[in-house]
Design a protein around this nucleic acid. Sequence first.
DNA 1: CTGAAAGCGCTTACAG
DNA 2: CTGAAAGCGCTTACAG
Lengths: 343, 343
Amino acid sequence: MKKGVTTLKMLAQHLNLSVSTVSRALNDHPDINENTKTKVKQLAKSMNYTPNIFAKGFRKHKSNIIGVIVPNITHYFTATIVRGILEQASIQGYRVIISESDNDVIKQNEMLHTMIQFGVDGILASLTKMTRDIDNILPIVDTLPLILFDKVSDKIPCTQITINDEEAAFNAVEHLINIGKKRIAIIKEREFSYTSEKRYAGYLRALKEHNIEIDEKIILSVDDISLMQGKRMANILLSIKKRPDAIFAITDTAAIGVIQTLNKFNIEIPEEIAVVGFSNSKHSTIIEPKLTTVNQPGNAIGKTAIKYLINEIENDNEADLIMKKTVEIKTELIVRASTFKAS
Amino acid sequence: MKKGVTTLKMLAQHLNLSVSTVSRALNDHPDINENTKTKVKQLAKSMNYTPNIFAKGFRKHKSNIIGVIVPNITHYFTATIVRGILEQASIQGYRVIISESDNDVIKQNEMLHTMIQFGVDGILASLTKMTRDIDNILPIVDTLPLILFDKVSDKIPCTQITINDEEAAFNAVEHLINIGKKRIAIIKEREFSYTSEKRYAGYLRALKEHNIEIDEKIILSVDDISLMQGKRMANILLSIKKRPDAIFAITDTAAIGVIQTLNKFNIEIPEEIAVVGFSNSKHSTIIEPKLTTVNQPGNAIGKTAIKYLINEIENDNEADLIMKKTVEIKTELIVRASTFKAS
DNA sequence: CTGAAAGCGCTTACAG
DNA sequence: CTGAAAGCGCTTACAG
């Protein structure tokens, strides 16, 4: 017991009241006399009373803690989501415990279970890249409120918060078409990646709607979408007979690798080849030419996700009324020098 | 009560034992018969028993939660520290709640108090930039274990984990001297910044030890050490009659602003002016020429910080024996094209 | 080696 | 409007 911590009992003794009354007064119970309330509250303040959250949580089976699992917290975009979560959580009186799955399915499962055991009121998760294996997550949905964000999976029946990946990619590719590009390559992930597939779909739709032929030779897939792979793919695209006149990389990191390679070969960007990325990472303004990219509002994603989660937590009696929905947060294309043509 | 959660009582009933015995068996109390222990443990496993952490924490006045406060979690370096903290915490069986102070002293104080009220076992904090006002933090040191990391303050009597800022800056500047630079400018923060002051001290010592004259005209201070300010300072340095032949920016961000400006004026880097940063941020390899910079091992800082904290938490009876110390984590200079000269 | 009992600090039906 | 009492799930002196 930490020295000098005030308890309900102590307040009760000082005022010659029962613990029950003091508790109710502090919680603004309607039964209690207004006079008593103010007296109790005054004393509580002067004695620096703060409720013991553990006793409270224990009693009410509620921890006011939310668990958050992300693959990699050092990604800027992820960090902005986390920031949004923290801000909103604090406003609504919740604490947040965070874990990193490191894109490891085993770790992710462990974390989900430790969090549940730990008594979190709900979980917010961004899944590992290769989440084929849903079996471990499915039972959780019945146990406590779970909401997915960013890296989601429509195979899990719960609310999902993402960006409008398909539409964003569509807009990005359409922008390339609008500036006169006719042969647009894409660098995407090989498979199993929800976001990659969505962005690829947007790419295909844009080409189709503009009657541009789809050419498998300039649709490149990589295992991990890194800067190195961006460079490798750029080299491949440069070696093709009919070179592309634009490259859409589904990640800024890869796009930057592309730009570095094009720079190396003194290829004019955007005149010869335009480049578009995805994320609006900080790097996108460091590279020259600056990168046209899709801005993802991480803060809004985080805030939205936790709002929905807290809503589910606080209305779980009417659980069946809560619609599991997919919320898409709007993105915007940020046009910079890697595509902008004065002409 | 969540459906079907197993409690000690249920285990006891199944085995015709008392709750006390079951509790002790599960906690490997020496008094208990080995046979009983294995029986209890088996049943616990098969019934999927997990202790109610809130009851436990409530009972033992221990939450196994650690509070972490950082100014800005979206900074890559901060995120790597947080990652180190999370990893080590999980190994040692602690959960971590995180808050962002947003470099706001008021918020920081609020957070410290919410965390204490929330029952964390200890706090790990990286202070706001301008922490003149220590009065609010001092009393906390007596209340519960507190350890500072990265942005620390030697005015607070507690263990502090930092990098060897002074020495790192010394090495960086000495490197510039070694490659033949004789007129080395520095871009630092105006004041009140612990790290900035340390790095500045390293700069001064390097010049002194190499008998290089210190010239106030090329010692520039800014309010916020941003990319924009880096650009502004580079412009100022270029306008000086006796231009510097090297620029040491105490932050990568500022150094990148410097490089962008030098590039704009087609100044040869490093021949005319060499540039050194500090942080080994991701950007430092995106910019051309790539930036020579000081690598700060965030992971090691995080791990060290939480190890010391848990040590203090778990030995608080011998509190007086615990030495409050300052631990300096070693950094290394990473030499890249912004200073490297073949000659 | 095992059990009965008290208690951690709070909330909440139940009584009056 | 207020109080006495039970109970949340666990641990731990105290007894035997």
